[in-house]
C-alpha cells in the first residue's frame, strides 16, 4: 500500500524526519540517520572553520543525493537573521526548503510566532518551501498557511525537553483544520510519543535529541522508525472507541 507523504510534488519516503545535532561524531550521525529510515535530514547553517579547514564536512557523511537536506534557521532570534540564514542556506545549494525557526526566548526556545509569520510570508514570496516551526496553536497554523507555508511544524513540547505531546487536543484541532501537512516538531522523548503523534493523524514527526541523546542512539533511531510506521498504520486502521466497561472478546455461546 503506497502511503508516502507528498508536499508540493515532492515525495517523501519516510514520515520520520531527523536532525543531525548533538551526535558524538559524523559517523554516529550517519549510522543513526540510516537506522531511522529517515528521508529528510535537518542541518544548521554556520560559519566554515577558517583555522581548521581540513575538518570533515557533515555532507560527506549524509549524502544529499540520498537524503533530502532541510536547512534550519536555528539560533535566529529575529526575522532579519532568519531571512539571512535561509538565503545563505539556499545559496549553499542543496534545496529550496527551509525549516524556519524564529526563536522568541533562549530558555524555552519557544517560537516568536509573529516573527515566524513575517519571515514565512517573505520567504514564500522568494520561492522558498517554508516549513515553519510553530506553537501548538491552531489559529497560528492557519495564519502560517495563509502566508505561504507548505507545511506547519507545531511543537509537541519545548525543543530537546523530551516531554512528549503536551497538548494532543490542540494538535488534533490543527490536524482537523489544516490544509497542508502537519509535521510534529520538537519535544518528543521516546517511541511512544512518536506513535501518539502519528496516531493523532500527524503527517510526519521531526526529532533530534530523542535519538541523539539516547543511551544507544542507533537502537533508538530504529525504535523511532518502527514507532512512526506503527502510529501511521494505527491511525489509518482506525482505533476502537474507549468504553468504561468490559466487552468480552470470547463468545458466551457454547460455554458449559
Amino acid at each position: 500500500m503506497q502511503d508516502n507523504l507528498v508536499i508540493k510534488g515532492i515525495e517523501f519516503r519516510s514520515r520520520l524526519w531527523v536532525g543531525t545535532g548533538k551526535y558524538k561524531d559524523f559517523e554516529e550521525t550517519a549510522r543513526a540517520v540510516e537506522a531511522s529510515g529517515a528521508d529528510v535530514v535537518t542541518v544548521a547553517v554556520r560559519r566554515v572553520n577558517i583555522t581548521d579547514r581540513k575538518s570533515e564536512n557533515l555532507l560527506d557523511f549524509i549524502d544529499p543525493k540520498k537524503y533530502k537536506i532541510l536547512p534550519n534557521t536555528a539560533g535566529c532570534f529575529n526575522v532579519e537573521d532568519a531571512l539571512r540564514y535561509s538565503r545563505l542556506a539556499r545559496e549553499a545549494g542543496v534545496s529550496d526548503m527551509v525549516k524556519l525557526e524564529v526563536i522568541g526566548d533562549e530558555r524555552t526556545l519557544f517560537p516568536d510566532v509573529i516573527g515566524t509569520l513575517k519571515a514565512t510570508e517573505i520567504l514564500a514570496k522568494e520561492g522558498f518551501m517554508v516549513f515553519p516551526y510553530t506553537n501548538d496553536d491552531p489559529i497560528m497554523a492557519k495564519r502560517l498557511v495563509d502566508a505561504g507555508a507548505v507545511a506547519v511544524m507545531p511543537l509537541a513540547a519545548p525543543i530537546g525537553s523530551g516531554l512528549g505531546i503536551r497538548n494532543p487536543y490542540n494538535l488534533k484541532i490543527i490536524l482537523e483544520s489544516a490544509t497542508v501537512p502537519v509535521i510534529v516538531d520538537a519535544g518528543v522523548g521516546t517511541a511512544s510519543d512518536v506513535a501518539v503523534a502519528m496516531e493523532l493523524g500527524s503527517d510526519a514527526v521531526l526529532l533530534n535529541t530523542a535519538i541523539a541523546g539516547a543511551k544507544d542512539p542507533i537502537m533508538m533511531a530504529s525504535a523511532m522508525n518502527h514507532a512512526v510506521l506503527a502510529g501511521r498504520l494505527a491511525y489509518k486502521a482506525g482505533r476502537i472507541g474507549r468504553k468504561l466497561y468490559a466487552t468480552a472478546s470470547s463468545p458466551i455461546e457454547g460455554m458449559l
Binding site: 536532525g19 543531525t20 545535532g21 548533538k22 551526535y23 559524523f26 550521525t29 535537518t42 542541518v43 544548521a44 547553517v45 554556520r46 560559519r47 566554515v48 577558517i50 564536512n57 557533515l58 555532507l59 537536506i69 536547512p71 534550519n72 536555528a74 545563505l88 542556506a89 549553499a92 542543496v94 525543543i159 530537546g160 520538537a186 521531526l206 526529532l207 533530534n208 535529541t209
Partner: peptide, 10 residues
C-alpha cells in the same frame, strides 16, 4: 566576508 556551510542541527 562570511563563508558558511552546513553543520549538525535539529
Amino acid at each position: 566576508v562570511e563563508i558558511i556551510q552546513f553543520v549538525g542541527g535539529g
